[in-house]
């Protein structure tokens, strides 16, 4: 008996995958949602549906995140407004590129290659951060100082006494918007580092502004894809049912486990996502079926591994166990 066109097994898989992604989102405050589009791609959904459903899922998840943060989330409305306008225009551009590429039959290949590159870069950056590379903070600070020293009018003052060019904020938002519309990601994992390291916005303000921004841009992006029927609602619904619960578990785990202890696993997950999409493309190009299986195993395996590490680390803390074999694994 199918549920809204999905077999009960597929519903279970999507709810389970949503749960894993929710744990990652709740714990790291970002990440995970951008695994949805590649996961749908490797499962054989057309690229427009994979991107559209990814955006709808991002919208639903960020609504839940915004509800949770509404009491203590610091939001810079000026920054959010400029970013929203720029990203909305950018998403339109990104979406047009996807539909153009779709008409030429090259969308799957190019979106996949972009994912491989982007996930690899963010993964390597996080891995370097996890290994405690000393220059990271000062490099970020230097970049923000340099950006703030550029006096391109109009200058705007943000929360935390940050004064930065509105034109630069707009340009950053535009680029992230294009990537967001092109890849079907909410932009959170690009927006957060851009606001903190690029503009020098305090972390708390970056998180609050980020969630509001993702809710708006994700909603708009999903709306545009939904207009052409490119949102698989049953898939999004099942993913959300899992992720809403996972987000609570992940957020609870942040009270118990330090993020740095798990960062290495997170970086490994991003890199695994990158290899998975590459393997799928190679498999399709050369007709090697086993590579497609490897790709699916990598994406789901990485999500299971990292969210499992988060939950295990939290359980170890609850039990005050730091010497057990499994508990030592999560903090290595």
């Amino acid at each position: 008996m199918d549920i809204l066109g999905l077999t009960p097994m597929m519903v279970g898989i999507f709810v389970g995958f949503g749960l894993l992604i929710g744990i990652l989102f709740g714990f790291f405050g970002m990440g995970g949602s951008f695994l949805v589009t590649p996961a749908l791609l490797v499962m054989g959904y057309p690229s427009t549906v994979a991107v559209g459903s990814g955006l709808a899922f991002v919208f639903g998840t960020s609504v839940i995140g915004a509800l949770r943060h509404r009491d203590h989330g610091q939001v810079d409305y000026k920054l959010a407004l400029i970013m929203t306008v720029a990203m909305t225009i950018g998403i339109e551009g990104g979406k047009s590129v996807v539909f153009f590429l779709d008409s030429t039959g090259m969308a799957d290949l190019i979106i996949s290659i972009s994912y491989v590159g982007l996930l690899a870069v963010v993964g390597l950056f996080t891995l370097r951060d996890a290994w405690g590379s000393k220059g990271t903070d000062s490099t970020g600070r230097d970049l923000a100082d340099r950006v703030q020293s550029l006096h391109i009018p109009p200058m705007v003052t943000l929360r935390g006494d940050v004064r930065v060019s509105g034109t630069i904020i707009f340009a950053v938002g535009l680029v992230i918007g294009v990537l967001s519309g092109f890849l079907g990601v909410g932009g959170g994992f690009l927006l957060m580092p851009a606001m903190m390291y690029g503009l020098g916005v305090p972390a708390a303000v970056a998180v609050g502004t980020d969630i509001l921004q993702i809710t708006i841009s994700g909603g708009f992006g999903a709306f545009r894809y939904a207009q052409s029927g490119s949102v698989a609602l049953p898939v999004v619904g099942a993913l959300l049912a899992g992720s809403a619960l996972g987000a609570r578990i992940g957020a609870g785990a942040t009270q118990l486990v330090e993020e740095d202890a798990i960062k290495g696993y997170f970086a490994a997950m991003l890199l695994a996502g990158s290899v998975a999409v590459a393997a799928k493309e190679l498999g399709a190009a050369y007709g090697i079926e086993i590579l497609n299986t490897v790709s699916i195993a990598l994406i789901f395996g990485a999500a299971v591994l990292v969210s499992g590490a988060v939950v295990l680390a939290a359980v170890c803390r609850l039990r005050n166990d730091s010497v057990g074999m499994w508990c030592r694994l999560t903090t290595s």
């Binding site: 949102v231 609602l233 619904g237």
Partner: peptide
């Protein structure tokens, strides 16, 4: 579609 996602 978006309304249903929001309500859910």
């Amino acid at each position: 579609t978006i309304g249903l996602v929001l309500v859910e």
